[in-house]
Design a protein around this nucleic acid. Structure first.
Length: 903
DNA sequence: GGTAGTACCTAA
DNA sequence: TAAGTTAGGTACTACC
């Protein structure tokens, strides 16, 4: 039988650990496989007298089952040979952390290694199994008789082996959402407010239901997808009954980690304290779900299943102004969330008819939306692929950061190469690392040639940092710290330090990266001749996972909480990167200099005889950031996209040939027009190959249109300006447009059109606890105002919307909650929006063309606009445009979404 | 009026 | 048992 590993843990039977692998089989059955015979261990590094220390450990600690002297490399530094170390095996996994500190106290003991690897991970790593990987268990084994297990199949196997299989098992997804009845309209609390409804959405369907809403009171006139229960107690019981019966692999919800799951858990505890016991068993081992608060995060665990809170996933993958389910559903699914306002809940709940039915349907929508987000946006595919490639369990990949996956890969490769890994650094070590961490320098950003440019070829380095590590054999295992290699056997990066060459000793990290890179290329190749859509998607997710993993190693090396932290290594990588982009620039400008085009081919001067019919194009690097170069092409005649493409490919070929393998400068795209405002701020009209033709679009980087702390009005106005300037070259039309916008704001009657508030709303993240703010911030003032009004402060991490209202006070004090402004007809600070939100960003763009700011605004007391003049750098030209003239081409937006500013 | 310090968000 | 990294622009405020 084959099944896919969803989760793993262990139980103790007769003082010996037995690993449990939970999963879903090909035939759809859920499986729990018991694996006995795997033992916990760790390493001890001591000076001399290993035999004596072995004996001491064995005598002193009765939880030690065995000690053995083994040969291993130390974690960091090039070493010519392995070292004798002690491998200590204990009876139970918990014994490892129990004795490690005492062992460190033994005279002669210097370090302990791998003392904090979770047992389930230790098992997966050593047996070369992977999260979400397929394993085969032989059919001959007897069923295991352990505990109360909610699985279709319970089996026993000492040696489950991984099998190669791409598609996922027929996984079952259950999405849920709870509704609580707030007492007096305030935030519900588990020891006061009952859970009144639970909505469930199933994929695939459960007994013919796609969704069910459980209601904790009698309901009449509801459809078949509503289950009415007598009271809260029987509803909660029913919820867990369905959960166990449906037996989902993935439990989904929106904000369930921080709300629904802790709420249910606490509510059950509260009910139990008042004498009502509910079987809340929900894991595959029949135990309840549990949660722990770690810092600001809540960690959920449920044996055998994976808990997926959609909120953090959406947060990390989409840049949105707000992450309420309402806004996310609207932005990403184009779906409306249905809501009963908290103040009306009680009224709806106490109703017997239509209002109650409406409430029920509204509740249903929430679990449907969470499910839809996961399915339609394929939110899990990438995590499943990362789990399979890195080996970490899916739950860890979803909850954790890059650390767990990088460490998982490192542990696997190091184990094969007999190299041990240190434990996570303690607070003191982290502190001392942080103190010195100013020593890590990053990428090089070239000063852009500001202004409007034409024919800019864009090239970038493919996976720059990973390829640098491979090319120069940069690794923890190659850095020279302990043993001294021979003459000429080392590489010295621009940042200093020394690394042995791959000929002397191939680095572990370069090996991992090379493997990932090659597999990614192979996966991409396979994608080309595959017609099955699911398989294509799985391969695509796999190649993306490999890309993510490739790019995670550099950051890990410079991360102060990493087990393996090396400033020398991280600095080596970035210093090669900086050197590289600078060399690339001079190679392009000084060595290549000009490219000659003839009959659809490109040549260097040395490759071609001078001929007046040739098209010569001279090159200039106008911008570059870390791994990219923007090359402006100038010629005596018009340069076509095809010409620019030839140039780009020629540059790519020449530069790549000059680089060590596998570094590669890739031709990316062509900017027909490009506008550079500052470092990290530009807009380009970009063309990319699309089959035989070209696909074009405007790409904006860093400017206000892509920033969430500017209002929508700014984005819309700026986008229009950029489009006019870049695509049509129509500066005048752009000026005209801005005037029209300014005019509209100046004449705004906010009391009449309250929808405009949406366009004037800015958002900022409430990023740290209030007491840590040294200065007042607009969004924090709003958060405080909201606290006064509703009694609760928004949680840290939430994005807070605000508008600026009229008044004489300081800016920060005039920030106000948009909802409050809408409801109370609070006047908006029109002048702020014109002078601070529209004009400065617009001027940064139009200033390039000599348009002066004063000509874009007029004082509200004046009746009209004066003519505007060119700026000091340009010739004075009259570019007056009648205010009433039409812009043309862009019909005004109509329909319910329209706004005053959609010109 | 210039400038230092804080905060935020983005590029890579 | 929380968390990959640095570079860089812009706005606001307090302060000289």
């Amino acid at each position: 039988m084959n099944f896919q590993i969803l989760d793993a843990d262990y139980v103790t039977e007769d003082t010996a650990p037995v690993v449990r692998l939970f999963g879903r089989a090909e035939d759809g059955k859920s499986v729990c496989c018991y694996v006995p015979g795997f033992e916990p261990y760790f390493y001890v590094n001591a000076s001399d007298e290993l035999d004596l220390i072995c004996k001491l450990i064995k005598e002193r600690f009765d939880v030690v089952k065995n000690v053995e002297i083994v040969q291993r490399f130390e974690p960091v530094g090039y070493q010519k040979s392995k070292k004798s170390m002690i491998q200590v095996t204990t009876y139970e996994p918990r014994h490892v952390p129990e004795i490690r500190d005492d062992i460190l106290q033994i005279p002669g003991v210097m370090e302990v290694y791998e003392t904090d690897i979770l047992f389930r991970n230790r098992f997966l790593i050593d047996r070369e199994l992977h999260g979400m990987g397929w394993v085969s268990v032989s059919p001959s084994q007897e069923a295991h008789q352990g505990g109360k297990i909610y699985c279709d199949t319970v089996c026993l196997d000492r040696q489950p082996a991984e099998v190669d299989k791409l598609p996922n098992a027929p996984l079952k997804f259950l999405s849920f959402d709870i509704e609580c009845l707030p007492i007096g309209g305030s935030m519900p609390s588990p020891d006061e407010s009952p859970v009144i409804m639970i909505s469930l959405t199933f994929a695939p369907a459960y007994n013919g239901h796609d969704s069910i809403v459980l209601v904790a009171k009698p309901v009449s006139g509801a459809g078949p997808d509503v289950e009415s229960l007598q009271n809260e107690e029987s509803m909660l019981k029913r919820f867990f009954e369905i959960l166990r019966d449906y037996d989902p692999d993935i439990l989904i919800g929106y904000n369930i980690n921080d709300f629904d799951i802790p709420y249910i858990s606490d509510r059950i505890k509260f009910l139990a304290d008042s004498g009502t016991n509910i079987n809340s068993g929900s894991g595959r081992d029949g135990r309840p779900m549990s949660y722990r608060k770690i810092g600001t995060m809540t960690m959920i665990s449920m044996a055998g299943r994976v808990v997926v809170d959609v909120l953090p996933l959406v947060r990390s993958q989409f840049s949105l102004k707000r992450y309420t389910l309402r806004n996310v559903a609207k932005e990403l699914l184009d779906r409306e969330k249905l809501d009963v306002a908290p103040s009306e809940m009680e009224d709806h709940w106490n109703d017997e008819g239509e209002k109650l039915l409406k409430f029920i349907d509204y509740a249903r929508r929430d679990s449907e939306l969470a499910m839809e987000l996961v399915m339609k946006l394929q939110l899990l595919d990438r995590y499943i692929a990362i789990s399979r490639v890195s080996g970490s369990l899916l739950q860890e990949v979803i909850d954790g950061g890059q650390t767990s996956m990088v460490e998982n890969l490192l542990l696997r490769e190091c184990r094969i190469r007999d190299r041990v890994i240190p434990p996570k650094p303690d607070d003191n070590l982290v502190y001392s690392r942080n103190k010195n961490s100013e020593g890590l320098k990053g990428g090089e950003v070239l000063e852009p040639k500001k202004g409007l440019l034409e024919n800019v070829v864009i090239l970038d380095y493919k996976s720059l940092y990973p390829t640098i590590m491979m090319a120069h054999n940069l690794c923890y295992s190659t850095v020279v710290e302990k043993d001294i290699p021979g003459e000429g056997e080392t590489i010295t990066p621009p940042s200093g330090g020394r690394f042995v060459t791959a000929d002397v000793s191939k680095g572990i990290m370069p090996a991992i990266l090379e493997n990932l890179l090659n597999r990614r290329i192979e996966t991409k190749k396979r994608m080309k001749d595959i017609s099955n859509e699911d398989e294509y998607k799985a391969l695509d997710a796999t190649q993306l996972a490999m890309k993510i993993l490739l790019n995670s190693f550099y950051g890990y090396a410079g991360y102060t909480r990493a087990r393996l932290y090396s400033l020398t290594l991280a600095n080596a990588v970035t210093s090669f990167g900086r050197e590289n982009i600078l060399t690339t620039r001079s190679l392009i400008e000084d060595t290549i200099h000009t490219i000659y085009l003839k009959d659809g081919n490109s040549y260097l001067q040395s490759e071609i005889a001078s001929d007046p019919l040739n098209k010569d194009i001279s090159l200039s690097v106008v911008y570059g950031d870390t791994d990219s170069v923007f090359v402006q092409c100038t010629g005596k005649t018009e340069i076509s996209l095809e010409d620019a493409e030839l140039v780009g490919k020629k540059i790519s070929g020449i530069v790549s040939a000059s680089l060590p393998d596998p570094m590669e400068l890739e031709f990316e795209s062509i900017a027909k027009r490009a506008l550079f405002i500052a470092k990290k701020r530009y807009a380009i009209w970009v063309f990319e190959r699309f089959g035989d033709g070209w696909k074009d679009g405007i790409k904006v980087k860093g400017m206000e249109t892509v920033r969430r702390d500017w209002c929508e009005l700014t984005s819309k106005t700026l986008n229009r300006v950029l489009e006019l300037v870049l695509k049509a070259g129509e500066v005048e039309a752009a000026v005209q447009h801005v005037r029209k916008v300014v005019d509209s704001i100046r004449n705004l009657d906010v009391t009449k059109d309250r929808d405009i508030i949406d366009d004037l709303t800015m958002t900022r993240m409430y990023s740290k606890r209030r007491e840590h703010y040294k200065n007042k911030q607009p969004h924090i003032t709003v958060a405080e105002k909201m606290e006064q009004r509703t009694g609760s402060l928004p949680p840290v991490g939430e994005r807070i919307p605000f508008v600026i209202i009229a008044g004489k006070d300081l800016f920060v004090n005039r920030a106000e909650d948009p909802e409050y402004v809408r409801e109370n007809n609070v006047p908006i600070d029109v002048d702020y929006y014109v002078k601070k939100q529209i004009l400065p960003p617009v001027e940064r763009i139009l200033g390039v063309f000599g348009v002066d700011l004063v000509n874009l605004d007029y004082d509200s007391k004046q009746t009209g606009l004066s003519d505007f003049t060119a700026g000091p750098s340009e010739k004075k030209i009259r570019r007056s445009v009648p205010r009433t003239s039409d812009i043309g081409g862009q019909p005004p937006n109509s329909g319910s979404q329209s706004s005053l500013f959609d010109f």
